[in-house]
Design a protein around this nucleic acid. Sequence first.
RNA 1: GAUCUCGUAGCUCAGCUGGUAGAGCAGCACACUUUUAAUGUGCGGGUCCUGGGUUCGAGCCCCAGCGAGAUCACCA
Length: 568
Amino acid sequence: MHILSEQERIRREALNEMRNMGIDPYPAAAYDVSHAIKSLLHDFEEGVEVKLSGRLMSRRIMGKASFGELLDSSGRIQAYFNRDELCIGEDKTMYNTVFKKLLDIGDFIGIEGATFTTQTGEPSVMVKSLTVLGKALRPLPVVKKDEDGKVYDAFTDPELRYRMRYVDLVVNEGVKETFIARTRIIQSMREYFNNHGYLEVDTPVLQPIPGGAAARPFVTHHNALDIPLYLRIANELYLKRLIVGGFDGVYEFSRNFRNEGMDRTHNPEFTVMEIYVAYKDYHWMMAFTEQMLEKIALDLHGTTKVPFGDHEINFKAPFRRVTMLDAIKEHTGYDISEMDEPGIREVCRKLEVEVNETMGKGKLIDEIFGEKCEGHFIQPTFITDYPIEMSPLCKRHRDNPELTERFELMVNGTEIANAYTELNDPIDQRERFEEQVRLQERGDDEAMYIDQDFLRALEFGMPPTSGMGIGVDRLVMLLTGKTSIQEVLLFPQMRPEKWETGPDLNSFKALGVPEQWLEHLPAAGFTSKEELLEAKPTAVHQKLNGFRKKNKLDIPALLLEEVQAWYN
RNA sequence: GAUCUCGUAGCUCAGCUGGUAGAGCAGCACACUUUUAAUGUGCGGGUCCUGGGUUCGAGCCCCAGCGAGAUCACCA
């Protein structure tokens, strides 16, 4: 138990008083409402009998009448509490005591009454009946907004907002909308795939070999099997096994886990949608992807134009297509298409792109692209035909064996999707994995492991297939105008909070402190037995009785002799 | 992991050259029957992130730690 602040103590006292009055602050019965607030406001009419529920978010008390705001999941409405409307008879306790004294901002209440419009033109509810549905014991931050929509005292500290997302969702406008948008984006995507007849599947999160991507995995241990298991870094190799098994198209919203840095674009767990479709190639997949994004933008915003920062991004298909080598030529002036590794190294030096000895030709090209080109692609652009070294799961380009049939979709200067014509030649695949092992030995810690079962599956034959993965979190960021991944994850990873262990009331009890006093000692400034015994008995005696008087505690005052007895 | 910045009341923030901790909102009390960032009067509320150090004296200076943010590295 933490030490209660004054405001928390006052709310607990109100809670007890409600119980003493026979009001259950946490009633069990369902409270069926007549309207969601948003829909009530949407076609607002006067004189409609309504029953609403929600949190009390503000109160403006003026003697016998008060205004408050009720917040439900859909919106806010003003409620008018008039003493004589709420309390028809002589007994005015419901207004004078329950509403004015015992309710607080943040409490859940139900109201029944009739709609009307105030003199200032505000749609409101004249409250005839009030029900307490759930008392809040902690004060909610009060965020206020003036006529111009200017926000005061917003709850802004990112640490507190992410740790206490429940508070963030209640008091900060727009937070809920972001997460509703996230779900709608996912629904739109799922609908698109289902309409094409592709099957949503689930593949293992716990994997014996962390394959399908180059990343550092989380390791755990399975006791019964006594083996290490890895949290998946990708699901690609499993989905391709399903294509081997005969599905035409499979997709999965895959929570992936990577044991790497955390910042405003990286969370240890994140969501990627991956889809694999048989008998298709990456040209088909580009068209499929751009149409998907156009649909998502339309479903979410009703237009393909999405504002983001200073830009407006247009998801209208088709998107521009540029080969990686052309992109490099476009943004650096160097044509590296005919160059060998030393030649490209020289270009890196001239461009002041940082490289090291472990990097192969492909990696060098990727570095140039990442440093000099990536950031320039604001409007959706497909970058195609990547070097073979950095694409070990991708089929060789039909016209150039040094390249692969791969594209990445760049939007707003970052990659949001990645796709291949998948490699289905098992012998080539085995050699590519072995090349990865050589890179690993050279020091490239991003190189991949060899998944023998995956190779076996390919040896049974996989139809030509195209696969695409899209970062769901980043897509949501783009479509909601957020610049940090923490804003689109309900519960982003944070360092665990340190909790006060709390005062040890039992140790006070052992000293002989009366039962009724135990809970008040920490509030009065004594959090441990040691702390108490360090002070003089006379000081303790005065401090505790002073606390009793100040807080009007309904317990007997302590005698000095009683306090002295604790010291023996 | 590195560098920089920040951590003060429930929330948002001031706090001078080191000299007894402040404001607004929220809370409590009183007044007020159509307000809307309601208003007026009064009153409470603090481990100044934690632990050391310097000093007669530390919210402020120094050291260490914890947490967060920004930049970078790695990654998507």
